[in-house]
Write a protein that binds this DNA or RNA. Structure first.
Length: 362
DNA sequence: AATCCGGGGCA
DNA sequence: TGCCCAGGATT
């Protein structure tokens, strides 16, 4: 073991008890902390990936209400599952979780395995989540290193290495593994995360005066808290122009299923095309779809920002002649209310979904 | 090791 | 606007 690694470990060893004590006094009341249930821990940890606590709360309650155990999750129809996740983002999280749930039903009799390695082998459960479930639900002394923990540890040890690097992440995991308390690993892991979420926060607002371990923190001692953690600059977002079509046939509006892979995989959307199209180009496209346009109206522009792409959208409202029922079109024609109930449409389309036709006579 | 995958809240 | 969030899979 390297010299500074030994130093880091002995320093981190000092914080275990005071931090755990602090957590027990100050932890937030959260729905998934009500009872010790490995399934609840699992669902909450998956939802909390790259997602704030406040955003997760209502989704968690609804999810476990509809799908109270692993069995129910394993058997849930795809569309219902996506509706339960609609708006949370990173939709593969829930698909992977269902795949894992089926594995758990088949191979573990519906009970999440109480071992770090077996948890890690499940779809959608990586280093962090395996550590979180193992330590919180089963009191197994393994670390759970998320963005909070990386920030907290880099400050306490005043580590100026790039925390985005795998090597740094691995080193922090090893150091924490060496100091995990055998009795209460779950509380200690949650204490690190809670500290990062509530006290040792990013972007120039760390509340060091409220920190239970500031006396052990090198960055605090040296006044370098706001310089840490060090992160590599991120890539620029790609801009994409799109034209969104609100195609109405009497009472109904066309929606379609997105491809099973890639961005917003398998969700539903309003028909849309790459580029900003003119009225004439849109009419051409609509005719090519075997539809007969009767009326067209320009809709306002809108923008949606994903983590790596930015859509700059323009839109058209188009009324078309009633169709023969079969036709072989790629579209589903749905009323707004029905589509909202049945189909998961990502919020990227929010600005145009509101032009879908409401049910008549109301 | 780098890239993809959402959406929202906040300064 | 940019940053960050209880990350993981894929290439």
């Amino acid at each position: 073991m390297k010299n500074d690694q030994i130093k880091d470990r002995s320093m981190l060893n000092e914080i275990v008890q005071p931090l755990t004590d602090w957590y027990r006094q100050n932890k937030r009341i959260l729905p998934w902390r009500d009872q010790n249930n490995a399934y609840y821990t699992w669902v909450s940890e998956i939802m909390l990936q790259q997602t704030r606590v406040e955003a997760v709360k209502p989704y968690f309650q609804r999810f476990i209400g509809e799908l109270p155990d692993v069995q129910a999750l394993a058997e849930c129809p795809e569309e219902k599952l996506m509706k339960l996740w609609e708006g949370l983002g990173y939709y593969n999280r829930v698909r992977n979780m269902q795949t894992a749930a089926r594995t758990v039903v088949c191979e573990y009799e519906g009970v999440l395995p109480a071992s770090y390695e077996e948890l890690l082998s499940l779809k959608g459960i990586g280093n962090y989540t395996a550590g979180a479930i193992a330590s919180i639900a089963y009191q197994i002394p393994v670390p759970a290193v998320d963005g909070n923990v990386l920030r907290v540890i880099s400050r306490i040890t005043e580590d100026r290495q790039d925390i985005m690097k795998q090597s740094v992440h691995r080193q922090i995991e090893e150091n924490l593994l060496g100091i995990m308390p055998k009795e209460t690993p779950g509380d200690f892991n949650q204490a690190l995360m809670e500290l990062g979420a509530v006290v040792c926060v990013p972007n120039g607002s760390a509340r060091c005066e409220a920190c239970p371990v500031s006396e052990y923190c090198l960055a605090y001692r040296h006044g370098t808290v706001e310089e840490l953690p060090v992160k590599a600059p991120k890539k620029e977002r790609i801009l994409q122009n799109r034209t969104v079509l609100v195609i109405q046939d009497g009472e109904k509006t066309a929606i379609q299923k997105r491809p099973e892979k890639g961005l917003l995989a398998g969700l539903y959307e309003l028909p849309n095309l790459l580029g900003h199209l003119t009225r004439e180009e849109v009419l051409d496209k609509v005719k090519n779809m075997q539809l007969e346009p009767l009326y067209i109206e320009k809709l306002p522009d809108a923008k949606h920002i994903f983590s790596h792409i930015e859509w700059r959208m323009t839109g058209y409202l188009i009324r078309v002649a009633a169709l023969d029922t079969d036709g072989g079109l790629p579209f589903i024609f749905a009323e707004k209310k029905q589509s909202e109930k049945q189909y998961a449409i990502p919020s990227a389309f929010r600005a145009y979904v509101k032009y879908m036709k409401e049910e008549s006579g109301k």
